[in-house]
Amino acid sequence: MKQKLRHQLGDQASQSASSYLYADIYLTLASKDQGLIVVTMRDLEIKGMVSAHAIIASSIFIATVMPLFFVEKFSVYGTHMVWLYSVSGSVAVVNITIFWLLGISPPTKKHTLGYKVSRLLRSCLYFILSCLLFHAVVVLYGAPLLESALETFSLAVLLSSLTTVRCLCVLGPNVPAWIRVLSRDGAMSVWDTSLQITTACSVIGAWLGAFPIPLDWDRPWQVWPISCSLGATFGYLTGLVIAPTWIHWHRKQLTYKSK
């Protein structure tokens, strides 16, 4: 039993070391009975996450401000589509860049070019599929079916770039892994936990964003889909803040099972 554990522990260590550049990981055998490998993170990793999240958050801010210089009469409400696509584009790009730089991506088995290309293609396909799925879900939740279909689809694109892109970056185009991550003990690293938190926060934000729509306040942000996309963005920002905080707070309790 012990030997078996040791053996796997070694495997885990080598795998983790390859996937975490900045993390200084040491492994402890928490309990022989449970046989769980507890990976305790140094603050360094959390710091890395804080800075990554800060970069993403500032990219959202820049994406909100920058179009002022390029688009005439730009405003978040008035030219909402521009804002929406600028935010989703910048979030997607910054996420991909950061996760690529950090090297936090699932270990690939093959390193051939064809494999990489097929992964890329599959990722794109998944992104488009997730846009369509989000669109369908939003319509089923009561969004107008035909009129303002473009707006609805844009909201779906925003939601996809807030959630799916990160999933693709962290887990790769691997749907079972996505489903696994969304379960209580499915997280296998801090990045998985932060993925859980930001995804949940964005979706809940979009959900909450639908609440003010029926109110008769006649505010510009009550127009479909502004409140939802704002809600999703604010939810995402909240998630970016909450994730490192929560992980820091629970760093003693957090245990990650290996595969």
Binding site: Q8, I179, R180, L182
Partner: peptide, 25 residues
């Protein structure tokens, strides 16, 4: 609709939606 969607999400969160993969550990 929200509560309906919550049901499978919750089951998945509890790890009940999918068969548990054999866990050697």
């Amino acid at each position: 609709c929200s509560l309906g969607v919550y049901v499978p999400l919750r089951l998945n969160w509890d790890g009940l939606l999918l068969p548990v993969s054999p866990d050697p550990l």
